[in-house]
Write a protein that binds this DNA or RNA. Sequence first.
DNA 1: AATGAATGAGAGTTCATTCAT
DNA 2: AATGAATGAACTCTCATTCAT
Lengths: 190, 190, 190, 190
Amino acid sequence: MKVKVTDKKRALLEATLTLVNNSGFHDAPMSKIAKTAGVAPGTIYRYFEHKQDLINTLYLEVKSSFSTAAFGGYTSSMPVEEGFRVIWYNIADYKLNKVSEATFLSQCDNTPIIDESIRAEGLVHLQPLLDLWERGKQEGVIRPLSNYVLYAYAVYPLSFLLAVQEREFYKLDEMTKDETFQAAWAAITP
Amino acid sequence: MKVKVTDKKRALLEATLTLVNNSGFHDAPMSKIAKTAGVAPGTIYRYFEHKQDLINTLYLEVKSSFSTAAFGGYTSSMPVEEGFRVIWYNIADYKLNKVSEATFLSQCDNTPIIDESIRAEGLVHLQPLLDLWERGKQEGVIRPLSNYVLYAYAVYPLSFLLAVQEREFYKLDEMTKDETFQAAWAAITP
Amino acid sequence: MKVKVTDKKRALLEATLTLVNNSGFHDAPMSKIAKTAGVAPGTIYRYFEHKQDLINTLYLEVKSSFSTAAFGGYTSSMPVEEGFRVIWYNIADYKLNKVSEATFLSQCDNTPIIDESIRAEGLVHLQPLLDLWERGKQEGVIRPLSNYVLYAYAVYPLSFLLAVQEREFYKLDEMTKDETFQAAWAAITP
Amino acid sequence: MKVKVTDKKRALLEATLTLVNNSGFHDAPMSKIAKTAGVAPGTIYRYFEHKQDLINTLYLEVKSSFSTAAFGGYTSSMPVEEGFRVIWYNIADYKLNKVSEATFLSQCDNTPIIDESIRAEGLVHLQPLLDLWERGKQEGVIRPLSNYVLYAYAVYPLSFLLAVQEREFYKLDEMTKDETFQAAWAAITP
DNA sequence: AATGAATGAGAGTTCATTCAT
DNA sequence: AATGAATGAACTCTCATTCAT
């Protein structure tokens, strides 16, 4: 019974993900979300206060799944390069495999869809990467740049490659992934 | 007289830029666009067929202003590094000074707002940069990577820095700009 | 419950009939139709895809009620004169009693309000009258004229008398009805 | 100069006739009328107070051209049958040749497009036919029916044949025209 | 808990009309 | 006299949200 309820919430979040990705936030009406989720329109409001709440919840959930994926197999005791490599490949795999989630995040990050406070909430999980970079800077193995710049060059490019891959212009396979990692690593090391 | 007419179209495009940036496409109704432009709602339709046409037109115009800015002072006879430096600084300055335009482009590039055919149309102006990279690869001064990857590491990171700067977390000044260029250059050179 | 739903559709069709009759298609806005039907504007679209659909549906419904009325008590085994008399009086009574319906049909038949395909659909029910005339022509009791001409002289004049009656210039009572039938009969018999 | 002005009024009336016939009153915007007439929208208002005035004027003009045509070659001294024959053939020829005008009148006569007072104004020209019928009734050569009924059976059927011909179902040629006249004459004579 | 019919504010768009030129 | 850009009320239709069942 409890399970069934959760199922509906799950279905709604997934329907939203799909529809926002395919048609954009501006063409993902509640009625369509409900239909895609196999639920009556009114039912949405048992699980979410309003549309914005649904979107916010989805954003936080996806952001958190992203962070979890990013740090799988990583421990803060790893050497900087190894740690970064683990995280980078995690992120790359997430972006290139969990395409819907990654696309959704891209859309949210470049649009005023998400309330600023919620966006901030979604950022906290990235801390281990920032800590790693701080350590790397102290050890002299990472360039002494703002973490924002490091993120821009180490992680953010993958979003572009995701988008390009989605438009079917390009496919990032295992080999080019390694070369791409080289570029990222070159960008942030002295 | 001709000038006045153009003024209204101009005002509408600017109003759209502002509103889409501030509230997103989904919350930039024609009525608000008209009011912001200081014009009656019906007037929009003298200049644009429908909302999508207005958005498309704006996109192409901004994209073209971006390309023009990107290649100011660049000639294809420059050595690869110098050429890239000129273009990179142009783009950085555009992104960091023409903030509204750059923000709008970011939004368009990550959202199904823009018709795919129009998006393609907006891409053609980038050719000189791609040519430069091809030459660089032949000369062995640029990594033998897909142009998409090169773009992802050389240019795309600036979009992230723009967004961050907009959220007032960070300011890219002249000195950090140089360091950032180093990162970009390091990413794409062997 | 099912009944209540149907009630709203019914109310909308009736409101449309009234308003189109009184003000014409061009001055029967959806908002007025909704208000007249005692329903919110948006509710119309649960029952009809668009305004044209509402109009088309109404047309077909009225046309069909007309045909049903026309052939009440008629069987194809009747002698031609008797059969015609039955049908003619049926039609006369319909036109003169079901005034709104008849007026609406007149308007539709002389205006590009109705899609041509829908109009064609509405015609099929008249077949028994055409069959009767064919038989009459074979028996030599009906003039050998095109069915269109027969219709023009036997049935169509009633539309005029309806319109005239509506404008309160004239009232067709039982006695004059008989005389009018004589005229119709005289027109189509040799 | 005076001629040129009149030309524009003429062009506007003709454009209106065409557009209302083809698309109906509800889809004949002033802007389209202006364009069809080769004139600027604002210019319409030099010649007509508002749209309704334009329609009314057109109606009266066409109605009057119809009446003029109807009584060409007729004099009140003719014997009843001959007089009727002249008028009937005039009307038949008008309906079947001046198709646009006749179609427009049909549309106006079955729609609340035209103000009732204007409609009444358009009727006066028919007086000679009514006078003829009164004489015929006194002479016992015309059935003692209301003039409305006589009109319904003698003249109105031609409107139906016009409509049918317009939809390309039927063509009324010279021979069938004679037979059709017989039907009309049979309907109104004892 | 779930439904889905109903709501009505508001979206995009049209168009009769005006008025500066 | 003529223009046509501009207006803004009114149109058709959508959709987030509510509520009786």
